[in-house]
């Protein structure tokens, strides 16, 4: 029989050889000193490679990785919040727009009117009292506005706000579905 090939030697060492082939090769090895020597060498090489010391990174390596990972986590917390709570956020933003639209404009008008009506000499001394009065007027006026909610203009604004909220919620859902698809 010819000498064992390098491939056969490696398969013998790795235990990736058929049992019948194994017997045949072992029979040759028993009779061939040269092949035994080569096998012993290859075995020693394999053992040596397996037992080579690992290369450790510097002692502060883990701390450095964690620093970078935690910075990323803080940065991405806002993005994660947006992704996870997008629908809720869209609703809050929409409601805030509605509340703002119905409340701030009359309040500003009332405040400006009150300030214009003040006599110049009383401006400083009665500032707080006038502000309080303006606030009270605002409340009264706002109450009247709320009663007037059924007006055609307000209904249009309300429907528009609802449509914006629905569009935002739909957009949010689509983005999340798309993200899930990309990730999977």
């Amino acid at each position: 029989m010819n000498h064992l090939t390098d491939d056969q030697l490696l398969h013998l060492l790795d235990g990736t050889i058929a049992p019948t082939e194994h017997q045949r090769l072992n029979a040759h090895l028993a009779a061939c000193k040269e092949c035994r020597q080569k096998l012993a060498w290859q075995r020693a090489m394999t053992r040596s490679i397996k037992h080579q010391p690992l290369v450790a990174p510097s002692p502060r390596f883990t701390a450095a990785v964690m620093r970078r990972a935690l910075v990323y986590e803080r940065q991405s917390a806002f993005v994660h919040f947006l992704v996870r709570h997008g629908t809720m956020l869209a609703l809050i933003i929409g409601l805030s727009i509605v509340v703002y639209a119905f409340s701030t404009i009359p309040a500003l008008e009332i405040m400006q009117e009150a300030i214009h009506k003040l006599p110049p000499e009383e401006k400083m001394t009665q500032y707080v009292a006038l502000a309080n009065r303006a606030f009270a007027q605002y409340l009264q006026s706002a109450g009247e506005k709320i009663i007037d909610l059924a007006g055609a203009e307000n209904i249009r604004l309300f429907i528009l706000a609802m449509l914006v909220m629905a569009a935002l919620a739909l957009f949010d859902r689509l983005v999340r579905q798309q993200l899930k698809r990309i990730r999977s």
């Binding site: 690992l54 290369v55 450790a56 990174p57 390596f61 883990t62 990785v65 964690m66």
Partner: peptide, 12 residues
């Protein structure tokens, strides 16, 4: 950090 410590030497 535990995961890093478990794999860092072999990965290095």
């Amino acid at each position: 950090a535990e995961l890093v410590d478990r794999h860092k030497d072999k990965a290095m």
